[in-house]
Design a protein around this nucleic acid. Sequence first.
DNA 1: CCACCAGAGCTC
DNA 2: AGCTCTGGTGGC
Length: 615
Amino acid sequence: MSPEKTENLPWFCDVIIPGPWWNLLTYELHCPPVRGGRLKTPVGRGFRYGIVDSFSRTSPGVADFTVREAAFPGDEGPLITEKGLDLIKWSAETFLCSAGDVLKVAVPPAILSSAEPFKARLLPAGTAKVNSNRYEEIFLYDCSSDSRWKKLAESIASGEPFLALLPEQSLAAAFFDLLPPPVKEKSLLWPSTGGKKLREAWLAVRQGKATGVVGPPGAAFAPLPEVASVIVDEESSGAYRTYRRPFLNIRTVAGRRAAIEGARLTLSGRLPSSKVYVRGAPRCNCRPSREALKFVDLRQGFLPEYPGVSDSLPLSAPLFRETAKAVSAGRVALWLLDRKGYAGEVACEDCGSPVMCPSCGRIMAWREKKKNLRCVSCGKISPLPEGCPVCRGAILKGKRPGLEALYPVARASVSDDRPVLVWDGAKSWTKKELRIVTKDLEGGGLILGTRSALSLCDRADVGFAAWIDADSEVRNVAFQAKFNAFSMVWESCWRGSHGGTRVVLLQSRRPGSGWQRGLLMGWERFWEEELAERKELGLPPYSFLIEVNSSQLRRKEGIMAKLEEGGLVVLDPGDPPGTFWVEAPSPARVRRILAPYFSIKNSRSGFPEITVWID
DNA sequence: CCACCAGAGCTC
DNA sequence: AGCTCTGGTGGC
């Protein structure tokens, strides 16, 4: 087209708008757009700020929507860099969510919806092209955080721009503190809270005032114009999964970011995720010593003097012995019970094995109303077996008591002048309360807690940790149940600076067997066994497992039918009622099939909720 | 007369 | 999901 002809033509922009629908929206603009730039766009009755993904001078043609006009907010540059846009779009594609939802977590609302235009010095031009030539992966597994962090800090000591992610804000702060001063000066600890602090951090990084970022998972999209090194510490931690829309695995997003940037990606931790294990087969020489790791066989009988507790929550003699030893030495003892009284659980009373589905091999759940078992995976119904198929023992079903039941026994087992506390993760402690608790524990004490109590290892000398019911996690239905159990116990062996000197005790009906074998032999052993099983069943990391939740049951049926037509394996556990699962070789295939359900046209009836499990 | 609200309605 | 529009209530 000649310049005279184009002069009066508008631009047509495809814009990423914050919202749950998957499609980009097209707007007309009467000034030249820029990729990554902000636009103020009318949506429905109101307006929102969005980001230009692409534009052209040809109109979209005949369509079932009318193109409305966007306003230019007057920014002197793009808000999002090319690489930033790439990362946002890739995350949306991979995790089956909308780019608009990813945009919302990538840019603080105070920035995206700022009525004030951004001036040139606030938005220097983004770096241009994607460059994956320098990308490399480094695996660094070491159970001592001290020595691992030291190695990580050394790897960024040259002053190159970096992004370092840790699973929690407190860990990020601790890691930030030990950076060498010249690096620290140019870096920034990413805030975990939103609001003004986040706005300032975002702008400082976007303007290049800070060239390194240390932060919790939320820092993954920190707008560093350039990154030479991406670090994801404790990469197998569940904290990298976001707990609300958009459902992302931040570890995977950060990995992609490194690839886009052509950066060095360091994946580190005490224990690799399945994905990393399959990719790089990293090795680690850390093993708990025979003396440090104790197994107690719950079938051997236990102390009878605590009626009401000991029959359902057995407490063994070694548990009391080790607790007394630690507390009298002025150290902290930790009794861990990670259980929410899960109602559907069925397991053998003698050997602890859960009841498995005869057709697909996954865990079955007891249904009190129907008095039968239903496979949580394929939905197969079967009667309750007369005895345990493994050892012929009696089958145990129904709720079990939790932490509170242990308190009286715990209180009685240590001397009156030592504190006994319940730490259940539901309560969030203020800094002041934490200081007081930490102080109280200095001369020794006993904590009853869920897995969240493990964070105490960072601030107190935990000399003894006991898993009251080490089999409980494995009665869970999720496919990563065994990994979760293994990872929790592994963490209890190593977390904190006293990790190496801690005694860890497991009360179990299958002491030292199954997933527990890897505790003594190292996680290589655990993964070899676990991965063989997952490969057999077609579970992650060998396929993508996609969880779909549609509260509208009529629509759920329709979606399932479409996916099956597309040749995908669809599993319907029936509970909770709106949820079903899809096994897929790639999310892209599922995305194509589901896209029509996520058009903005469906806004009125709401959208299903999707979570993608990669490993 | 208007502030405040719950519910309806709309979406390139 | 946001957002605004609508129409009712109730305080003065």
